[in-house]
Every structure is written in structure tokens, then in C-alpha cells.
């Protein structure tokens, strides 16, 4: 009971910490605009393959979901016996792939904040773009269960990315302020966000592995 209570307290404090956070808002705006752009590009066949779908660090869920819905692309109709082609090849993805790409993408978004936050913004945009382009393909060709799993995993991944990006942007802006005022100040909330990122990334790794890879 005490464990559940402390976990709930931690989650509540994390939610409180991210509320009214301008850096988180910036990260979410970048992500959502890029997502809409990526989705539009894929929906109108401006691009006929997911943007940077091969690069797992940008958006690992595309490669994880890919073997499941290639059958859907092949069938293109509700043919009798279509379940045989639900997963047309063995996934080349393993636990290391899932762990590596989730950890590195979070570290990348946070770590590149030291370069005045510019690479963080660029990577956040690329994640949104790639995720938008990928999800259009999954929705169109995957079965309902795979599509629902992918949307759920996308949501948890976006939370991790938004939090990581907000930390990166905050670090970047703190460095810019340091150049201007010769003072290095960081809000204490950043530590709560960092803890939340670590927890969510670990949960994401487990969920992605269990739901799509295992």
C-alpha cells in the first residue's frame, strides 16, 4: 500500500511539475505541428514511405510495427483467410533495438540542449514528422489491434519525447541566459521532469517490447 501511495505521490508531483511549463508547451507545439505536417505528407502521397522510418533513434515504433502490417499492404481487402498474412515476416527487432533507440532518443533530446537547444528543437521536429508519416501508414494498412497498440505506444513515446525536449530546450535557454547575464539558473522542476523521463522511457521500453516485439 505504501509503495502504491508513494508511486501515486511521485506521479502527482511529476504532473504538478510539468503543469504550466512553457518549455513543455514549446516542445509539444513543435511535436504537434511536425506530426501534422508528416501526416499530411504521407496522407497525400507526397512521400510514399515513412520519413526516416529506417532510423530507429528518430521514431523506433515504425520499425517495430512494420512486420505486422506489410500483410495488410499485400491484401488490400477483407479477404477470407487474410489472417494468415497478418504478420508476414519475423520481426528483425530485438530487445536491444527497443532499449537502445528509446534511451538514445531521450538522451539525444536532453543532451543536445547544451548546444543552445537548437539540435533539440530539430530532433523534436523530426520525431513529430516521422511519427506522423508512420502512423498514417499503420492506420491504413494494419489490423485494428496493431493500429490501437501503435497509437497507444505513440502516445507514451510522445510524452517521453516532449518531456526530454522540454529539458533540452530549458538547458539551452539557461546557457543563452548565462551568455547574456553571466548567471546560470535552472528551475528545480527540471529534476522532477528528468526523473519522469527516466521512468517513462523504462515503461516505454517494456511496453514496446511486450506489445509489438515479443
Amino acid at each position: 500500500m505504501s509503495i502504491i501511495g508513494s508511486l501515486r505521490k511521485t506521479i502527482d508531483s511529476c504532473i504538478e511539475a510539468v503543469k504550466d511549463d512553457k518549455y513543455l508547451k514549446i516542445a509539444l507545439i513543435i511535436l504537434l505541428f511536425a506530426f501534422f505536417l508528416g501526416y499530411s505528407m504521407r496522407f497525400f502521397d507526397f512521400t510514399k514511405s515513412p520519413i526516416m522510418g529506417e532510423i530507429g533513434v528518430i521514431y523506433p515504433i515504425h520499425q517495430e510495427a512494420f512486420p505486422y502490417y506489410m500483410g495488410g499492404i499485400a491484401i488490400q481487402s477483407d479477404m477470407a483467410g487474410s489472417s494468415r498474412y497478418d504478420r508476414i515476416s519475423e520481426s528483425p527487432i530485438d530487445f536491444l533495438y527497443v532499449m537502445r533507440n528509446n534511451v538514445i532518443s531521450a538522451v539525444l533530446l536532453v543532451g543536445t540542449g547544451v548546444l543552445l537547444g537548437i539540435p533539440t528543437v530539430v530532433f523534436t521536429f523530426l520525431v513529430g514528422l516521422s511519427a506522423g508519416a508512420s502512423i498514417a501508414e499503420v492506420l491504413e494498412f494494419a489490423g485494428l489491434i496493431v493500429a490501437l497498440k501503435t497509437i497507444f505506444l505513440l502516445t507514451t513515446y510522445v510524452i517521453a519525447v516532449a518531456l526530454s525536449a522540454s529539458i533540452g530546450i530549458e538547458v539551452g535557454s539557461a546557457i543563452i541566459r548565462y551568455f547574456k547575464d553571466n548567471r546560470f539558473e535552472i528551475d528545480r522542476k527540471i529534476y522532477d521532469k528528468a526523473i519522469a523521463v527516466i521512468i517513462i522511457v523504462v515503461i516505454n521500453i517494456i511496453l514496446q517490447y511486450v506489445l509489438l516485439v515479443m
Binding site: R42, F43, D45, K48, S49, M70, I73, A74, Q76, A136, E137, E140, F141
Partner: peptide
């Protein structure tokens, strides 16, 4: 269909 050029 060709799997490297999948249009919606």
C-alpha cells in the same frame, strides 16, 4: 505491391 513505394 512494391513494398518500397507504398502509396496510400
Amino acid at each position: 505491391p512494391q513494398q518500397w513505394n507504398v502509396g496510400l
